[in-house]
Nucleic acid binder design. Structure first.
Lengths: 141, 141
DNA sequence: TCAAAAGTTTAGCATTGTCTAAACCTTATG
DNA sequence: CATAAGGTTTAGACAATGCTAAACTTTTGA
């Protein structure tokens, strides 16, 4: 065989990533939204999260338990949800990525709506290298 | 309230997509790989798919059943897997998208490896509008 | 103040995608 | 041409994520 193995190795890696990191993606989405809500209103409540994300309350509660186990959020029963230090770090990381991707898409000439929607999806699949290239493009173009 | 609802509507739309379309993404990944294998070897066998994707044989078998129900692939028991007309259409669509995204990333200046890996992930989250902008960029830059 | 409304949690179920192990066909070889 | 090797399918389990309905707690307002 010649040069086919590297290619399939990469594909497998990319594919495996989609499996293993899907959970991380969800965590990031929740955590980012919680950070937004705290910034906006001072606290993040289950109902608000559920409404913004379009899921049922019960789903949010279950997810919060998981995020809590992962050390990303803190909460007392029947109280609002807050982020741990690690949670804030993740939220800020995500926000930064998000802003770069969204700004980049705008610079590329897509509409504001598309930039917003696409950047949500793309955000989780952009490596540090690509992110850097996007940032460079915005500065230099 | 002012201008906060549109934003949350968009977010919810983007988020919902991740749930409902995750399956479609998987289907596309499988279908694209099957097309590649057929091009390369004339047929796609379960084991090959499993190896390239890094999953177990059983997983492939189960997925093939689903793809078959969806009218994307055809197969006889214990035989290789082939694509239906619709399956080919999906594979070609995906390949086209993939090539645009990968080419775009290369044009942006990222390494070949990163372009390959990132384009796998990004491919499924790029709207027609963004795709067009990427194609334009490659031509004009 | 206390009952209704609003929010949260728990319980139980469905679906999806993955795995391992075992049973089952097909192909290749001695 | 019989059997071993190799692919494929099936069975059963599990984790993740979602849902609805019901129970429970907190807040609000008459």
């Amino acid at each position: 065989m010649k040069r086919k193995i590297p290619s399939s190795k990469l594909r497998s890696a990319a594919f495996t990533r989609t499996r293993a990191d899907h959970q991380a993606e969800l965590s990031q989405d929740y955590v980012e939204l919680i950070a937004e809500l705290i910034d906006e209103k001072g606290e993040a409540r289950g109902t608000d999260i559920a409404m913004r994300l379009g899921v049922a309350n019960a789903t949010v509660a279950k997810t919060m338990k998981r995020l809590s186990d992962q050390g990303l959020v803190e909460q007392e029963p029947y109280r609002a949800i807050f982020l741990t230090g690690e949670g804030w770090k993740m939220a800020e990381d995500g926000k930064r990525k998000h802003q770069i991707v969204e700004g980049f898409l705008l610079a590329l000439g897509v509409s504001a709506e598309t930039a917003q929607v696409d950047s949500e999806g793309i955000e989780h699949h952009v490596s540090a290298e690509t992110l850097k290239a996007m940032a460079r493009f915005m500065v230099r173009r």
